[in-house]
Design a protein around this nucleic acid. Structure first.
Lengths: 276, 276
DNA sequence: ATAATAGTGTCTATCAGACATTATCTG
DNA sequence: CAGATAATGTCTGATAGACACTATTAT
């Protein structure tokens, strides 16, 4: 039996253990929920409008406190369902934000998640949100724009860059600068930047793209989605080669766009060969 | 002046705000510190030996609690210095571990960091550690072995895989199974798996590799480091092409290995062209 | 027919991988 | 010189990018 310096076994140690009253942070999850607009025109991001201070009436990412006996993943899943009703979403941990003062109330860390959904369900604000809505998201080289036509809300940040030294390496980080009258709550713009960076980096060697697609899709729709995520064109031949062993024809033909033109073949995602 | 439903301004709201007494997790950072062995034979990982319960006398990753008014990054930096004396290390956030029960004492989350160092300084245990040492690290397809010859300690986990479904995607996760008599404390083996996965994924499109190198190095040394990290061979022509616009000759010649053979050119990392 | 879009063929430049050859060092 | 290692040259197969051409639909 292993005894520590006080002569206690592990069981005895745990029985007498006092966690102490030192300060602990509150920990939340914030979720970047992305989907494609109808017609596959652009990315959509889900925002809620805060009903109370701080950042009252500012738009924010959905999220909330992690409860005792709950993993961050399950908390994100629960919040997503509670705040938006979404149940079938891809969820991936992005980064944990710990900057002091990021919440004016108290010490709060946030574990950021990326959620990808294949259809934009109707949402409405609950809990401490007085509204919820899908915003068009445009993330280009030099700016991020979030826009909801219906509510006539535009949130825009200009992007500048900053060099950051980490040991011998020098990174280039984006620095967002608010341009519009409206702003996002807390440091949520930084969460968007990090999540989009990770999504874009992983798109070619993961199958994340398909999480944004409905069960059946055409190559034109897939290509529009790729281009919306990456903010750059891709040749249809190139995209076809990337995905060709991951998709299968359904056998159906249908139109991709609202305009003229030949009908598209319909595909489903098959997950490709499993390597063993 | 914006008033909330209780008629309070933001300043008033913050002045009267009560954070409440709901349960908060303790948050630590755990750091995977990697360096190359003398002679560039294999990766080395820094472990400390726990001096008290829980997991008393088990080897563990260095780390500790994040203090109030401190970012996770700074906590990792501070812990690294306190526990090992290392000051110049590359530090990158890997993943936040939140599984309930991962610490038998209480609710603890851990923000895992990867630290890469270019030389293995002498280390000794402090605080709640009764020892500290560099271990050889071997991470192959089917097992992870941590070994310290001098202390005759071997920690070994067999790796099996498990399919994990996330929305339409199916991932393959590693499941470690303890094989040796000794084990790592807590879920630290999972931190090693995640950190090594991320390091390997990023090695070709980041300059992380150079964080493991001294200021001056030969191609043979760089190649040995690449191979130790990736656990696979790389042709010297291939590696040369990858790094050729990131390094510069110092003009000196010296031997890479202890054996016979031609002398090597010495290089330094220049960071390559900065794209504008 | 014409405009628009879908699907396929193919050329090319690039690059990773594989290996051969030459250069330089030790003993 | 033999053995070992370093540095470089070059062939090949795979692939991303660019574009042309054919097919199918609506008006």
């Amino acid at each position: 039996m292993l005894l520590n310096k006080d002569g206690l076994t592990e069981a005895e140690f745990l029985a007498q253990y006092n966690p102490g009253d030192y300060k602990r942070p509150s920990v939340t999850t914030d979720i970047l929920v992305l989907g494609m607009s109808a017609g596959f025109k652009n990315l959509k991001i889900l925002l809620i409008r805060r009903g109370d201070h701080p950042f009252m009436h500012c738009w924010a990412l959905p999220g909330g406190f992690i409860e005792d006996n709950e993993t961050a993943f399950n908390a994100a899943k629960r919040e997503l369902k509670e705040e938006t009703g979404l149940e079938q979403a891809y969820l991936d941990q992005i980064y944990t934000f710990t900057k002091t003062g990021r919440d004016p109330r108290m010490w709060v860390m946030s574990i950021a998640y990326l959620a990808l959904v294949s259809n934009l369900e109707d949402v409405n604000g609950m809990d401490d949100a007085d509204d919820a809505a899908w915003f068009d998201l445009f993330f280009t080289e030099d700016k991020i724009v979030l826009r909801n036509e219906e509510k006539d809300v535009t949130i825009e940040y200009k992007l500048t860059t900053e060099q950051f030294k980490n040991s011998v390496l020098t990174y280039t980080n984006y620095i967002p600068v608010l341009v519009s009258k409206e702003r996002l709550a807390f440091d949520h713009i930084e969460i968007i930047i990090e999540a989009m960076k990770k999504l874009r980096e992983s798109i070619d060697y993961s199958d994340n793209l398909f999480c944004l697609m409905p069960a059946k899709f055409t190559m034109a729709e897939l290509r529009a989605t790729y281009q919306a995520v990456m903010n750059r064109d891709v040749y249809k031949t190139t995209l076809k080669r990337i995905v060709e062993n991951k998709i299968e024809k359904t056998g159906c033909l249908r139109k991709s766009s609202v305009l003229n033109g030949r009908q598209s073949e319909e595909f489903t995602y098959t997950g490709g060969k499993q390597y063993e």
